[in-house]
Design a protein around this nucleic acid. Structure first.
Length: 409
DNA sequence: TCTGGGGTCCTAGGACCC
DNA sequence: TCTGGGGTCCTAGGACCC
């Protein structure tokens, strides 16, 4: 039995962070539209987080690239304007886009804050897929004030590749019959999931275009690259059976990390930062109504050498104190005082729903119950008065350094 | 004045058991 | 005295995405 051909769109906001910042500024009465000048959204060099997150077309014309340093960007374009990121603003515009797209299908996957996949297979009563893409593009521009690229295809991979062709404000199809002319001539670095570590390995084998990769024997790629090799061969040939996932999945881990304004060399100071990071991680964990079984600490030295250690918790928990104790054990075993540390990260992993919890009377000590009540009380105060206004003594100083991430709806 | 922060998934090696 | 191999779990690190 032949499977029905799927009808997929990939909607990608052009220069999302910069466009949305521009709209937010205009709304507040700004006289300039930063989309029309050489401008970027970037971090803060004084906080050592100076990289380019998004750029305007004029900044792109100067040769500025996403993820390069602000220092490099300024060198390329001396009259560059730089604006800070604001994820609350981005979340608002992302939600507006999502609401509009929901009018077209209920099979929508929010792939990132500025990208959605739409499965239109059962929602094309009148008009074809390309016409729907045109309508969406026009409506987003007119009603929301920013532009999108839309990829039109029969699977997610091809729709995603298509939306990336030329920008901005463009619609591209990538039907199976167009693969040889529109996708195969592209360099392998353009293929989704083929990153900068794999490019030189393939170049070494004279595989330079997506077409070269598509015509390589699948077995050879599997032999060298394992599962990744199989996937890359399939992608190069336009094969992708993955579904548009309209139900958001529960997180598998929650993390928080910070690049420090100055390197730290004392265990005590590192523990203070870890304490504040854990405060936020466990808060988010509790808001998700989940428990963690594993804690992971990441340290990055001044020379950008990363190490991580993880450990199992005595019980699955969202308890701040228990998780902090495990974190301190991990720091003791991995950190030698005096080594300059640039970044500190905390993650909780192997999450499970709180309802699944098997409460053992032996594990549920009076002490823990008391601690959980304290966590709950602090959470409620944070909800009411704002995250940073309520904090445990000791965390105050470092809390201010750490930006709190609001959860997705 | 170099080099963010949030994720997911995979791999390789060691421990341990049968 | 000989000394296999499969399965599972755990950990550290790496590749990739936006």
């Amino acid at each position: 039995m032949k499977k029905e051909q799927r009808q997929i769109l990939h909607v990608d906001v052009n220069n999302a962070f910069l466009s949305w910042t521009a709209l937010s500024m205009l709304k507040q009465g700004s006289k300039i539209d930063i989309r029309e000048i050489p401008a970027i959204i970037g971090g803060d060099e004084s906080k050592r987080s100076g990289i380019v997150l998004a750029k305007s077309m004029k900044a792109k014309e100067c040769g500025i690239k996403t993820a390069e340093t602000i220092y490099q960007a300024k060198a390329k374009c001396p009259n560059l304007s730089i604006y800070p990121s604001n994820f609350e603003v981005y979340r608002t515009y992302s939600n507006k886009l999502y609401q509009l797209l929901c009018e077209y299908t209920d099979q929508i996957e929010r792939f990132s804050i500025d990208e959605c996949f739409l499965d239109m297979t059962h929602f094309l009563m009148k008009g074809n897929l390309l016409e729907k893409a045109k309508e969406i593009s026009r409506r987003v521009k007119e009603e929301l004030g920013f532009t999108v690229n839309i990829g039109v295809a029969h699977n997610k991979l091809l729709a995603k590749m298509a939306s990336d062709f030329t920008k901005p404000d463009k619609i591209h199809t990538l039907w199976e019959k167009e693969i040889p002319t529109r996708m195969w001539p592209l360099p392998i670095s353009e293929l989704f999931m083929l990153g900068k570590k794999t490019v030189p390995k393939l170049y070494h084998k004279q595989i330079k275009t997506i077409g070269d990769l598509a015509h390589t024997q699948e077995e050879k790629l599997i032999k060298q690259f394992g599962k990744q090799g199989k996937m890359l061969w399939e992608y190069a040939n336009g094969i992708d059976h993955s579904e548009v996932k309209s139900k958001p999945e529960k997180p598998k881990g929650i993390g928080n990390s910070i690049t420090l304004p100055q390197n730290l060399v004392e265990t005590e100071k590192i523990e203070e930062i870890v304490s504040a990071l854990i405060e936020q991680v466990t808060y988010r964990l509790r808001r998700q109504n989940m428990l963690a079984e594993v804690v992971n600490i990441q340290l990055r030295t001044k020379d950008f050498v990363d190490t991580s250690h993880q450990g199992k918790l005595p019980i699955a928990t969202a308890n701040t104190k228990i998780i902090l104790e495990k974190a301190k054990e991990l720091i003791q075993e991995m950190y030698h005082e005096g080594i300059p540390i640039r970044l500190i990260g905390v993650r909780v992993d192997h999450l499970k729903e709180k309802e699944e919890e098997q409460i053992s009377l032996f594990q549920q000590t009076k002490q823990n119950t008391k601690q959980e009540k304290l966590d709950k009380t602090i959470d409620q105060l944070k909800e009411k008065y704002g995250y940073h206004l309520i904090t445990r003594a000791g965390n105050l100083e470092v809390e201010n350094m750490i930006q709190f991430r609001k959860e997705k709806e």
